[in-house]
């Protein structure tokens, strides 16, 4: 068990070769995911029957486009009491959530692989490979990364176009900054992130401040009208719709919240808005 942990730790830096060897040693048979982003990757990469349980968040079509695939799976809320009886030989967890559960399970000898949160397109590739290797399916991981790269390369923007600014405007006026996947996708497509221009890195902007900053493009998450909130109300503000000069595009947050190949879809949408 320690050997698998060791291998998956090293595999980050070392080539696929070692990973293949590790996979040959022991591919886990019962995998539990305790983080919504590892849920995504496990659903994409696990062999039929290999994945036993995902989090309750993965059932939500708003957060997980593949929510229907979770129907036959056990659902956990990331507590040790739920996960331990599942007799998992691999637990996938994030590095920022369910900390106490992870420490407890390590003490009890469970094999836990932690996946750091995604902050860039490079992280997407890293995390896909890391999870694929932990699952003992590195070839599938490589195939997924290759498809992702192909989709992504089509939308890459020349650096000349970076004069145009895009505001990545989320629920409640939250603005995605540079070290976020959304920010990196915008940069990849050839936009300057408005958060850097106005110095709102990781912060929020009111509707008025957004209009004043005069971005060339406003990227909004579609408001969740079936689940009303004040945060969603901000995105529905009439001032964001009325003005003819404000160019807007809606991108579902699920596409670039986690390290899924859907980030390439977001890039394609942004590129279409760029070339319009």
């Amino acid at each position: 068990m320690t050997r698998v942990t060791f291998c998956s730790g090293v595999a980050w830096a070392v080539a696929t070769f070692i990973a293949v060897v590790c996979a040959a040693v022991a591919a886990p048979k019962r995998v539990v995911s305790m983080n919504v982003c590892t849920d995504h990757l496990a659903l994409l990469l696990a062999a039929p029957g290999q994945l036993v349980s995902v989090t309750w968040l993965a059932q939500d079509p708003w957060l997980n486009p593949a929510a229907t695939q979770t129907k036959s799976l056990h659902i956990n809320r990331g507590t040790a009491e739920e996960v331990l009886p599942l007799q998992a030989d691999l637990v996938l967890a994030g590095t920022t959530t369910t900390r106490q559960t992870v420490f407890l399970m390590r003490r009890l000898g469970v094999n836990v692989v932690e996946v750091p949160p995604v902050r860039s397109l490079v992280d997407v590739r890293h995390n896909i490979r890391a999870v694929a290797e932990a699952l003992g399916r590195p070839a599938d991981g490589e195939a997924l990364v290759a498809r992702f790269e192909a989709d992504l390369s089509a939308s890459a923007g020349a650096s000349v176009q970076r004069l145009r600014s895009a505001a990545l405007y989320g629920s409640g006026g939250h603005v995605a900054g540079q070290k976020t996947l959304a920010g990196d996708v915008a940069e990849h497509v050839g936009f300057r992130n408005l958060a850097d221009v106005v110095g709102a890195s990781g912060g929020s902007l009111s509707v008025e401040e957004l209009l004043f900053a005069r971005p060339d493009l406003v990227v909004l998450s579609p408001p969740q009208r079936d689940r009303p909130s004040l945060a969603a109300m901000t995105l529905d503000h009439p001032a964001l719709r009325l003005n003819g000069t404000l160019r807007r595009v809606e991108i579902p947050p699920a596409w670039w919240t986690c390290e899924t190949p859907d980030a390439a879809k977001a890039a394609t949408q942004l590129a279409a808005a760029r070339d319009r």
Binding site: V207, E208, L211, F212, R214, H237, P238, A239, L242, N243, G244, T245, L246
Partner: peptide, 20 residues
């Protein structure tokens, strides 16, 4: 910023004023 908007994009200035 306000004057620039008022001169070059009066529609936007009106939106800020009336709608917000």
């Amino acid at each position: 910023a306000w004057w620039t908007m008022l001169v070059f994009e009066p529609g936007l200035a009106e939106t800020v004023f009336l709608e917000i």
